Amino acid sequence: MQAQYTAVTPFNHKLSSPLTKKGITVLQINLGKRCNLACTHCHVEAGPKRTEELSPEICEQLISVIHKFPEIKIVDLTGGAPEMNYGFKPLVEAARATGKQVIVRSNLTIYFEDGFGDLPEYFAKHQVRIVASLPCYLVDNVDKMRGAGVFDSSVKALQWLNQLGYGKDENLILDLVFNPQLPNGENFSLAPEQSNLEQDYKMFLQEHFDIVFNNLFTITNLPVGRTKMHLERRKLYTSYLQFLELHFNPSTVEHLMCRDELSIDYLGNVYDCDFNQMMNLPAKTRNGETLTVGKLLEAGSLDLISEIRTAAYCYGCTAGSGSSCSGALL
């Protein structure tokens, strides 16, 4: 396995100086791996059989962090299906009570599962920003990546959200996420130009389904989780990393999402980003200790990380126009 990494220039060798944090403004929390879907490209490897989720103790610590640090402007809730995991609504309400924007990364189909039919109205009541996965506007491509029937359920969910004002009311933001199809051969490609693809999405969805939304985010498939497994099974892992390195764009580095966010897992461990979290590469304090939510509270500071930890998959965030949880960087 190590030989695969030696075929690619270490990411930190591409940088003119060590990658460091700016002021922390985003708290991204992965509430757990429980999900009603098991998407082929999922870097979290979430699914219906996973049981890992936030504990009451860690949830209380996170609520304390939300209250204690006014510099946090955005609380970004992800999973799994974040809505299925313990602590979801308490975290939403704590963040909104302190004037922070809440983002939920929703698969849309969860609204049709037993016990979750109140979610669209709940989101509208609390003005939660919805970032929803819709990796294509064509049914076959979506169902291939996310499961049979997912496209139709997603369309119904988007129409439901539109009826509540999402995509129309300035306080009810609805964004969609595009992911490229996973490659089966060395025909690799980066995501299309974001603004052009957004217009294609908007025209198609409005014409065929009367759906409107705010923004489209194009996100590169990083070789992590199930995407990594897919590439390894087809002996494409090394060549995909080389493709990403070939398209490294130094202009993206200033805008990387890891620079102003902390990523928290369901155990309360702190990471520089969600991808490092999935690859078990925890953030380190200036003393070289692994960082936890408890240590943030104890120190009374979010600025305990001296240098962002990097790996070969960081080329995915810096290739072409760049990639982040909020889409292209340039």
Rank of each mutant, 00 (worst) to 15 (best):
N215K: 10
E245V: 04
R105Y: 04
A311T: 00
L182M: 15
S189G: 10
L31N: 01
C258L: 11
F88T: 07
K168Y: 06
Q28V: 02
L291R: 14
G149Q: 12
F116R: 03
S321W: 00
C35W: 00
V128L: 05
V75T: 07
P90N: 03
N221G: 02
L256A: 06
I103K: 10
H67G: 15
G32N: 03
K100D: 03
D274R: 06
T40W: 00
A3T: 00
L19S: 09
N162Q: 03
Q199G: 02
L297H: 00
I103N: 12
Y313D: 10
S16W: 01
T318L: 01
G268F: 06
R233C: 11
T218P: 03
C317Q: 09
Q101R: 14
E71A: 13
E289S: 11
N269P: 02
N171L: 10
L134K: 09
N276T: 00
L236F: 15
Y137Q: 09
I211G: 09
G117D: 10
G99T: 04
C35K: 10
T20F: 05
S263E: 07
Q101W: 02
I173Y: 01
S195T: 15
R309L: 14
P70Y: 06
Q181S: 13
Y201N: 08
G327L: 01
H247D: 10
G147R: 05
M257I: 10
C59G: 09
V128H: 04
K168H: 11
L190D: 07
G23M: 05
I24M: 06
S154V: 13
S154Y: 11
Q199F: 07
G167P: 03
D140S: 13
V44K: 08
G80N: 05
M279P: 02
E71H: 12
N187Q: 14
H255V: 00
N171W: 00
F88D: 01
G322I: 08
P282C: 06
C59D: 06
E121I: 10
G288T: 06
D272G: 15
L244H: 14
R50S: 04
A81N: 12
N107M: 08
F275D: 12
C136M: 04
